[in-house]
Simulated scan of single mutants.
Amino acid sequence: MVDSHCHIVFRNFDDDLEEVSRRWRDAGVKALVHACVEPGEIGAIRALADRFPELRYSVGVHPLDTQHWHHDTAAVLRQAARSDSRVVAIGELGLDLFRDQNLEQQLATLEPQLDLAVELDLPVIVHCRDAAEPMLNLLRQRADRGACPRGVMHCWGGSPEEMAAFLELGFLISFSGTVTFPKAAATHACAQLVPADRYLIETDCPFLAPVPRRGKRNEPAFVASVAARMAELRGETLTEVALTSSSNAAGLFGLTLHTV
């Protein structure tokens, strides 16, 4: 399996990261994509990639971290991406109107990152919460002028209709621990409907631990629970979901075969 979105740089992994890594390897996780929320993390994430050869990472600014966007941030991200082949995406970028209402500021941070992804021919990792309409409007405008990067809608929580719109734009859909939550009916429907070649699985750890560990710290090994629930919803085997989602992740992020 590939955990296509994690945050093990956070301090709550400081004391037991070696044990955490043993658990993800024992669970069959062969590759991880570590998302970045602001440039100050890049050095520490790069050090994690040195420590764990199965780890690849993104560089970017999260929509809830717009205070970290400065006049030179695009140049900082460009240099970081160009200087390390283990950078496989730009992000985590996007829009979040659930926690913040500063749409114009978020767009001002988002647009140059989308430009950078197109420039560097890298996929984007998109965070989109309560913001499907403005995100779709922006991406459709960019698609019309040939400036919409490929990418993945991370930690999917939208409706089947919204999913169809992002799929039409060429995006993949990534399912997290929320797909295991009993009341997540829309996410369950999306998991059943998404085409086999268009989905990923992730943990978004340390957040959103899947059932039966809900409410506890999440970790990459728990992506197995996401895969198991996806298999139930899709009427497939765990092996089928693991291999399909891994192949999709390898295709999107350019992971080499020995990584997966």
Rank of each mutant, 00 (worst) to 15 (best):
A117G: 09
S176M: 05
Q141G: 13
T203D: 10
W156T: 04
H127S: 06
A117R: 11
L97W: 09
L107D: 00
F171S: 10
A143W: 00
A108T: 01
L114P: 11
P212S: 07
L116V: 01
R213P: 02
N102A: 14
L95T: 03
L172C: 13
V118N: 09
A185L: 13
D144R: 13
R145L: 00
V223I: 08
F171V: 05
A209R: 11
K216W: 01
G177I: 01
V179K: 14
G157T: 15
L120T: 07
H188C: 05
L193Y: 05
L138T: 09
S174N: 09
P123I: 01
G215C: 06
L103N: 07
D130P: 03
Q101T: 13
I201L: 14
A132C: 05
G170N: 12
F175R: 12
S174E: 08
P195H: 12
G170S: 10
P220A: 07
Y199H: 08
L136Y: 04
P123Q: 06
F207E: 03
V126W: 00
G157W: 04
L139T: 05
R214P: 00
M163S: 12
R140W: 00
N102V: 01
A196D: 15
P182S: 11
P134V: 03
V126A: 13
P220T: 06
P210R: 09
P182R: 15
A189C: 08
